[in-house]
């Protein structure tokens, strides 16, 4: 809520507000990425090593977040879980972005019948409730990390395709594109060099919000048992915690916090990026318009 307030502040301090968001989100995201990268060095032990006689141990010295039902260290699982979440997030965003770029770019650039076909396909995908389709896909493909990535990518690309198409449609009518056309720049070159860079800002914002969404979706799928069994994952640990909520509440709390913090961090980062980049591109646009007019 505190972040909402910054939007209502007078215009002069808006840039500072966005910068604060960017700083906060960026720091947490950077930390998460570092934890994911250096998990084997940071984790106190093997996250999947079973110690039957120490199930349900509550947090304390030496096992700071306690143990789960099979005596596995929760801190190690949360640290390794960051790896799974970040990996799935990055891979899904990369695949979705590439697919979205191809489909949305092609539709927006060439328009006509191609646009018609691609956008109807996008509409069909949008008609499905997102997570439900992911659950159905993951259930059909079978529980594994690869299939979670496939299921989430199948949904993720649609949003990027729409944004990129919209951006292409609006930018291709701008003066500087017309100018480029007038001096005889090739069609493909216009698309790649003059229009595509304008998609960067909204796509970056979408990707940052998207990371949060993918992390949440991956956790949901793992929670439902559609993730990879035997891989430490926040969702999996959370579902075990839910099972033992009354006997050992600490099992659910820590993966829950990890999910919350990382989703929040990516959303805040997204807000910050949006604020700064869109402001900048506004400036850029007015300058571009001015030039076009000259």
């Amino acid at each position: 809520m505190a972040f909402q307030l910054t939007n209502e502040k007078p215009k002069a301090s808006q840039g500072a507000g966005y910068r604060r968001l960017l700083f906060f989100g960026g720091t947490v995201v950077a930390l998460l990425l570092l934890v994911a990268l250096f998990a084997p060095w940071l984790a106190p032990g093997d996250p999947m090593s079973i110690h039957l006689d120490s199930g349900f141990v509550t947090p304390g010295p030496g096992h700071w977040l306690g143990h789960d039902r099979l005596g596995r260290d929760i801190l190690s699982q949360v640290i390794y879980g960051a790896r799974v979440s970040m990996l799935v997030g990055i891979v899904v965003i990369a695949i979705s972005l590439s697919l979205g770029l191809i489909v949305g770019g092609a539709a927006g650039f060439w328009g006509g019948i191609l646009d018609e076909i691609f956008m109807r396909v996008v509409d069909i995908f949008l008609a499905f409730p997102g997570i439900l389709l992911a659950i159905a896909l993951a259930a059909v493909l079978g529980p594994s990390l690869k299939n979670v990535v496939i299921a989430l990518s199948c949904l993720g690309w649609v949003g990027y395709a729409r944004i990129i198409r919209g951006q292409f449609l609006s930018v291709r009518e701008r003066g500087f594109v017309e100018a480029a056309r007038a001096v005889g720049v090739g069609k493909l070159r216009i698309g790649l060099r003059h229009i595509l860079p304008h998609c960067l800002a909204p796509v970056l914002v979408q990707a940052s919000f998207g990371m949060g969404g993918v992390i949440l979706a991956e956790s949901s799928l793992s929670f439902l048992g559609l993730g990879s069994p035997g891989t430490p994952s926040w969702g999996l640990l959370l579902s075990e915690g839910a099972e033992f909520m009354r006997v050992a509440p600490h099992i659910a709390i820590f993966p829950g916090l990890a999910i919350m913090i990382s989703v929040l961090a990516f959303n805040v980062l997204g807000d910050g990026v949006q604020g700064l980049l869109l402001k900048k591109s506004d400036l850029f646009l007015s300058r571009g318009a001015g030039k076009g007019g000259a």
Partner: peptide, 15 residues
């Protein structure tokens, strides 16, 4: 099967 206790038993036997 996907029974939680069954999976846990499998994990322990596997170890």
């Amino acid at each position: 099967s996907q029974d939680r206790l069954r999976i846990r038993i499998a994990e322990v036997i596997a170890q």
